[in-house]
């Protein structure tokens, strides 16, 4: 038996929005530790790693580890039927072929349930090595989304350069060039507005805009985003999910031909 209840059901809706354009289908791995997902996009350029710890759920029971393969377009249709203020409960039997979603309104006067057929996915998991990154930048997630959107107008890829002074996003295209520089903030009233840079070595790497823009669909999950960069390895773009989880996007860099 698997059962997970999240009072703040809107978090699950936001997680769905954060992955549904990048992935067509994905396996949700459930264990007593919580819910995890790892999947590559169709082109195998990026990888999504989602972790929601059991401690973040109001109720969490997982008697046996199980993997639930879901079509994300179908899952999205179901989660769109939940209101932002609804509590969401997922339920499945051991070795399930369906999963049930129950949505309860705040006053408990409206209860709806939907069941969805699961699919068999033969997804391979990749081992992600522990990496000490040369630069780790934390910045407001809305600012990152805006920069990616703005610069995408001018070219297909963005170069991210990081020094101890700050982070620079650059684009070059047919009509010209664009640069956005963010300095490390000295004093800010709100932690959510801070830009912080932890640098061991300066880094400059180039990434496809298309994927960066997909990742920014996670912006509603967290006011801050963390970018981790090292030469010749994938960029990590991380958004926290409340206090109990995260979604990490890994993006393979463009390499010189």
């Amino acid at each position: 038996m698997f059962e997970a209840r999240l009072t703040q059901g809107s978090l699950l809706k936001k997680v769905m929005e954060a992955i549904r354009e990048l992935l067509n289908e994905a396996s949700f791995d459930c264990s007593e530790n919580g819910i995890q997902l790892q999947a590559m996009d169709n082109s195998h350029v990026s990888l999504v790693s989602l972790n929601m710890g059991s401690e973040g759920f109001d109720k969490f029971r997982c008697d046996r580890n199980l993997t639930m393969g879901m079509n994300l377009a179908s899952l999205s249709k179901i989660l769109k039927c939940a209101s932002n203020s609804d509590a969401i409960t997922l339920k499945a039997q051991d070795d399930p072929d369906t999963v049930t979603f129950t949505f309860e309104s705040e006053n408990n006067e409206r209860v709806s349930d939907y069941s969805m057929k699961l699919i068999n996915l033969d997804q391979e998991h990749l081992g992600i090595p522990d990496t000490e990154y040369s630069c780790v930048v934390k910045m407001p997630s809305a600012d990152f989304a805006r920069i990616c959107k703005d610069l995408s107008q001018f070219g297909d890829c963005i170069t991210i350069s990081c020094t101890k002074e700050g982070i620079k996003f650059s684009v070059a295209g047919d009509i010209g060039t664009g640069n956005v520089k963010l300095a490390q903030t000295a004093n800010v009233d709100k932690e959510s507005e801070a830009v912080t840079v932890e640098m061991q070595e300066p880094v400059s790497l180039t990434f496809a805009c298309r994927y960066l823009n997909h990742f920014t669909k996670a912006t509603p999950l967290s006011e801050q985003v963390q970018l981790s960069l090292s030469a010749d390895v994938p960029l990590v773009v991380e958004y926290k999910i409340g206090e109990f989880g995260h979604i990490r996007y890994y993006l393979a860099p463009k390499i010189d031909e």
């Binding site: 590559m40 350029v45 990888l47 391979e124 990749l126 090595p129 860099p253 010189d256």
Partner: peptide
């Protein structure tokens, strides 16, 4: 603007 590499070049199968 460089060649897009695959994520599978960096992470091995678990």
């Amino acid at each position: 603007s460089g060649k897009q590499s695959s994520i599978m070049n960096f992470f091995s199968k678990a």
